[in-house]
Design a protein around this nucleic acid. Sequence first.
DNA 1: CCAGATTCTTGCGTGTACGCATCTTTGCGT
DNA 2: ACGCAAAGATGCGTACACGCAAGAATCTGG
Lengths: 216, 216
Amino acid sequence: MRDVTTNRPGLRERKKEATRQALRAAALRLALERGPENVRVDDIAEAAGVSPRTYNNYFSSREQAIVAAVTAERASRVAAAVAARPADVGLADAVIDAVVEEHTDPGDDARDALLMITTSSALRACYADTVTTMEGPLAEAIAQRCRGMDPLTAQVLSAGVGAAAKVALQRWLRSTAVPASTSGLVAPSGSLPNLMRIALMPLAPALDAAATRPRP
Amino acid sequence: MRDVTTNRPGLRERKKEATRQALRAAALRLALERGPENVRVDDIAEAAGVSPRTYNNYFSSREQAIVAAVTAERASRVAAAVAARPADVGLADAVIDAVVEEHTDPGDDARDALLMITTSSALRACYADTVTTMEGPLAEAIAQRCRGMDPLTAQVLSAGVGAAAKVALQRWLRSTAVPASTSGLVAPSGSLPNLMRIALMPLAPALDAAATRPRP
DNA sequence: CCAGATTCTTGCGTGTACGCATCTTTGCGT
DNA sequence: ACGCAAAGATGCGTACACGCAAGAATCTGG
């Protein structure tokens, strides 16, 4: 223990995170340059300066690294946003606003990455799966906000929110993927934030009920 | 159109379903005989009388066929159970009872299969994923039960239920997987049906609220 | 009963996922 | 500063997933 101010990342941890970051960045860059289909795992590994085998110590599929470049810190951001909401707003509002906020127009850099993801079937699937990532941190944030709440309840609510977000994401991806030939009107419910909010609304009663009734 | 009474399965459909069934059965049988780790997809394919390539036209992973042998008709059974509940019971009760009922002590044949699944890491993961399967049919059943409900709402509720069930399943699998060395008390909340019901409870307010308020 | 259109099956080839054994790096106590 | 223990990186070998293109089976309308 040498430096308390730096919060002890440890050399090992820092190197590991650096490698993960390098892989993410390399994967995204190559995918944007050549198109997702023309990027091999070996290419990403080489660009990141590690062995191909090492790649699979960090990511268990080829697409994960690409998608992770966009979704890397989403989980912690959502959890932080929930924690940051003033204590007098209901749990439902806190959670829903946090999730919606996270899915409103990212920076320009992520814009084209998202476009690429929506146009590749494999990437779309992988991207939709990443919403599961936030369940853990979200459950913690909920439990933290509602002291005395059963941990299982917090986890269930978090999983429900994740599932709803996934549904919204899938609908949005579906609507953006099709050119124009879809039978009738897809009517994409407008923007993703709108759709996300609408999808999360039905869960509001569950969130508020659990928050006000800590111990059944 | 020749026979209306037989509901027109069609030769093609029947053969396809037969192949799927054969693959499931072969996979389960071999896995029980030799242990899950000692079964190659080539073995399953050969036992079912199809080419290895064909296997992957039906299942996209080695474990899927094994697990599918147990979970094959769960989705339709849950949906049917929801539909079968009398119209005067609330949506929450109907859905929760249906899901819990589906997860209460299956037949003796499925018993040892479940035991095998719980003792294999890969199978556990695959098994937990299959709960997603029922989201589609469940959403239909919910929408059918609550005329006028927004389809998106039905899908979100269904996804939430699936997510909650998955959490319950994961906790149960976790508690059964460890021998006895777990730090302190795992206290598995008793049986799976109990755990499942407790996990689904927090969603009840959302289900009932959506049911009574068709059009916001 | 036939011919065209679908849909399924299959072999092949490529790229991927991961267990295992080994070697290197990092962490830590003395 | 030293050396042991823990964790990571890497190479290798095996099995798997899946696109593609040919061929067989099934369905359709005449």
